Computed example of a mutant assay.
Amino acid sequence: MLCIGFSSCSNENDEFVQDNKEMNTRSVKAIHTFPNVSRIKTDPDVVKKMNEAWEEMKNYAAKGKRREYGFYIYYDESSDKIHCGKMQMGDNIPNCEGTHASIELKPDYPALEFQNTVCAHFHCHTTLQYCPSYVSRETGPSIGDINFANSQQLPGILYDYEDAKIYGGDSKDKKYKMQTFGEYAQRPDRIY
């Protein structure tokens, strides 16, 4: 004889009620914690890929063209490893009007796939070496960069020039720095 019972999980105490008898159970919740940006930005694979993006940006730049490069950074909690997504590039900026370029990152994996969960994003800003000297821009994360990081609840990492402002004709090989930005130094925990 086969008996099938239906239960309801409506008690706040996580107890099942079946046929007027109580059956105590425990609910199990998983908390997935992500690495802090201080760990992410020093991970050797991440540093290598950020440097590659910076070099790609400089190598692409020429008279009448420049673009940003970047990628998502992923975390695999089961192996405690951080890895980089595919290098992505922004649209070509064909001239020096509107000195800010942009990049729209697209995830490499399904956003909720546990084994490869986005934990941060990186991009680099462009040189103005091939622009006229009257063109300039402030360095550092833009309002759009910050808004994106905050809306995604992810830390942002940026390579940009060390000076507070750069000008057309400044060497693309000037010193640069890494900055983190956004309200989140760590992706919030996920509770499943």
Rank of each mutant, 00 (worst) to 15 (best):
T33R: 05
T33S: 11
P35C: 03
N36R: 07
V37Q: 00
V37N: 01
S38K: 06
R39D: 15
R39E: 13
T42Y: 03
P44T: 02
D45L: 13
K49M: 15
K49V: 15
M50W: 03
N51G: 05
E52A: 04
E52I: 08
E52R: 09
A53S: 15
W54T: 12
E55C: 01
E55N: 00
E56I: 06
N59D: 04
A61T: 03
A61C: 02
A61Y: 00
A62D: 13
R66A: 10
R66W: 02
Y69G: 01
G70I: 15
G70V: 11
G70R: 02
G70Y: 00
F71I: 01
Y72H: 05
Y74E: 00
D76T: 07
S78E: 10
S79V: 05
D80W: 07
I82P: 06
H83G: 08
C84D: 06
C84R: 09
G85T: 10
G85N: 04
D91V: 09
D91Q: 10
C96L: 06
E97C: 05
E97S: 09
G98Y: 11
G98D: 11
T99E: 14
I103E: 00
L105P: 07
L105E: 05
K106Y: 15
A111N: 12
A111S: 13
E113W: 12
E113C: 07
F114N: 15
N116V: 03
N116Y: 06
N116H: 09
T117P: 02
V118T: 01
V118Y: 01
C119K: 00
A120R: 01
H123G: 08
H125Q: 03
L128W: 05
Q129L: 00
Q129T: 01
Y130H: 10
C131R: 08
C131V: 09
P132M: 05
P132I: 08
Y134G: 07
Y134P: 04
V135Q: 06
S136H: 13
R137N: 12
E138N: 14
G140I: 11
P141E: 08
S142V: 07
S142F: 07
I143K: 10
D145S: 10
I146E: 08
N147L: 11
N150I: 05
L154A: 09
P155Q: 10
I157M: 12
Y159F: 08
Y159N: 13
Y159T: 05
Y159W: 04
D160T: 12
Y161A: 09
Y161L: 15
Y161N: 12
E162W: 04
E162T: 14
D163I: 04
D163S: 12
A164C: 06
A164T: 09
K165P: 14
G168T: 09
G168S: 05
G169D: 02
D170E: 08
